[in-house]
Simulated scan of single mutants.
Amino acid sequence: MIQPATFQLADAPGALAVSGALTFATAAAVLAAGRTALERNAPPTLDLAGVTQADSAGLASVLALLAHARQKGTDMKVANAPRGLEALARVSGVSTLL
């Protein structure tokens, strides 16, 4: 049986922590939840240590969250990006944004 892709967002000291899947199946929900979290508090770090899988839609959601944080006046940085996400960012020409 195939398990549905899930994710979690959690406020951590100085960070918004993402865990689970950052994929096409979760990207819209990640973006909506992330924007809501950033409206409450825009921490300086987006921690991706708990991300178990990511694809181009997940990368797009991360970039959109970084842009939203910038609009809120926070220069948010990404920490602990999975190697696969970093590779995808390099291939896509957006690695400097992470």
Rank of each mutant, 00 (worst) to 15 (best):
P4K: 15
A5C: 10
A5I: 01
T6K: 12
T6D: 06
L9M: 12
A10K: 13
A10N: 07
D11Y: 12
D11G: 14
A12Q: 09
P13T: 14
P13E: 07
G14C: 11
G14N: 10
A15T: 08
L16M: 11
L16P: 01
A17R: 01
A17Y: 01
V18S: 05
V18C: 13
S19G: 03
S19A: 13
G20Y: 00
A21N: 02
T23E: 05
F24D: 07
A25K: 05
T26R: 01
T26Y: 00
A28T: 09
A28F: 02
A29H: 00
A29S: 07
V30D: 02
V30Y: 08
V30P: 03
L31F: 09
A37P: 07
A37L: 08
L38K: 15
L38W: 07
E39Y: 02
E39R: 09
N41H: 15
N41C: 14
N41R: 15
A42D: 06
A42I: 08
A42W: 09
P43L: 11
P43H: 13
P44F: 07
T45L: 09
T45G: 02
T45R: 13
L46E: 02
L46V: 11
D47V: 15
A49M: 05
A49K: 03
G50V: 04
G50N: 02
V51P: 00
T52L: 10
T52N: 10
Q53W: 09
Q53C: 12
Q53L: 07
A54H: 06
D55Q: 11
D55E: 08
D55W: 12
A57L: 04
A57T: 02
A57S: 14
G58P: 10
G58C: 09
G58E: 00
L59P: 03
L59Q: 08
A60I: 03
A60S: 12
S61H: 10
V62C: 04
V62R: 01
V62H: 03
V62P: 03
L63H: 09
A64Q: 11
L65H: 14
L65F: 15
L66D: 03
A67D: 07
H68T: 15
H68F: 15
A69F: 00
A69G: 09
A69H: 12
R70Y: 13
Q71V: 13
K72M: 14
K72D: 08
G73A: 12
D75P: 03
D75C: 13
M76I: 15
K77G: 05
V78F: 08
V78M: 05
V78G: 06
V78W: 05
A79F: 00
A79P: 04
N80W: 10
A81Q: 04
P82V: 14
R83D: 06
G84S: 12
G84Y: 05
G84T: 14
G84E: 07
G84P: 08
L85Q: 07
L85T: 02
L85E: 05
E86T: 15
A87C: 08
A87P: 06
L88T: 14
A89N: 03
A89D: 03
A89L: 07
R90G: 04
R90P: 06
R90N: 06
S92Y: 12
S92N: 11
G93Q: 04
G93D: 06
G93E: 05
G93P: 09
V94G: 06
S95Q: 07
T96E: 05
T96H: 13
L98M: 08
